[in-house]
Amino acid sequence: MGRMKFLCDAERCIECNGCVTACKNEHEVPWGVNRRRVVTMNDGVPGERSISVACMHCSDAPCMAVCPTDCFYKTEDGVVLHDKDKCIGCGYCFFACPFGAPQFPNGQAAFGARGKMDKCTFCAGGPEETGSQAEYDKYGSNRLAQGKLPLCAEMCSTKALLAGDANVVADIFRERVLRRGTGAEVWGWDAAYGGGEQKRERKREGQS
C-alpha cells in the first residue's frame, strides 16, 4: 500500500462546493473552520479553473516540522494527524503550511483567540479509540477504519476530487488523460509539451 493522497482534476471541478459541505456534514465542522475549500483562478473569464484544497498530507510536512509541542504524527499510509490534547494553538503550523490547511475556530476577541488547531484528517480520525465518541468529538469520523475513503472525494459532483492510495488515484486520472488526448483538455499538457520555453525553442529552430 502506497501513501494516501488527494488529487483534484481541475478539468472537472465546477466549484460546486460539494466537497466542502460533505466534510462539514461528516465531521460536524463548525462555522469558521474550513477544512476544505475550493479555490478558483481566473474567475469569470475564459481560463477559469477551480481546485479543491485541504491538507495535502505532505511527505515532509512543514506543520510537523515546526510544531513546538510535537503533536503531529504520520501514519503508515502517509496521513498526517495530530493530537489535540497536546496542541497549544500557537498557530505556527498555520504559518508553515503552504496550503492553509490548519484551521482555528474563530474566537470572539480580535487577536490571539485561536483554539485548538483543526484540519483535514483524510477522514482517519485521530489518536483516540477508533469509532469512539471522543474521537468523533475531537477529530470527526474515522472512515478509513471502516474501509471507506474521504467523503469529500466520494461525494464530488463530477468526480474531480479523487482520494485514496496514490497509485489507484493516479490510475484513475491516467485513464482520463488518455481519453482527453492532447491539448488543453489534458491538464499540464501545455506546461510539459507546448508552452513557454519549449515553444520558444521550437520557433527559434524554425519549427512552427
Binding site: 511527505s59 510535537d70 503533536c71 504524527y73 501514519t75 489518536p127 469509532g131 478509513l144 471502516q146
Partner: peptide, 23 residues
C-alpha cells in the same frame, strides 16, 4: 532523501485503521 524520523511525537498513541476496527 527526506526520511521521516518517527519518534518525536509526544501525543497519545493511535491505532492503525485495520487494528481496532471491523477489520
Amino acid at each position: 532523501v527526506t526520511v521521516y524520523e518517527q519518534g518525536q511525537y509526544r501525543g497519545k498513541t493511535d491505532t492503525r485503521p485495520w487494528e481496532d476496527s471491523e477489520f
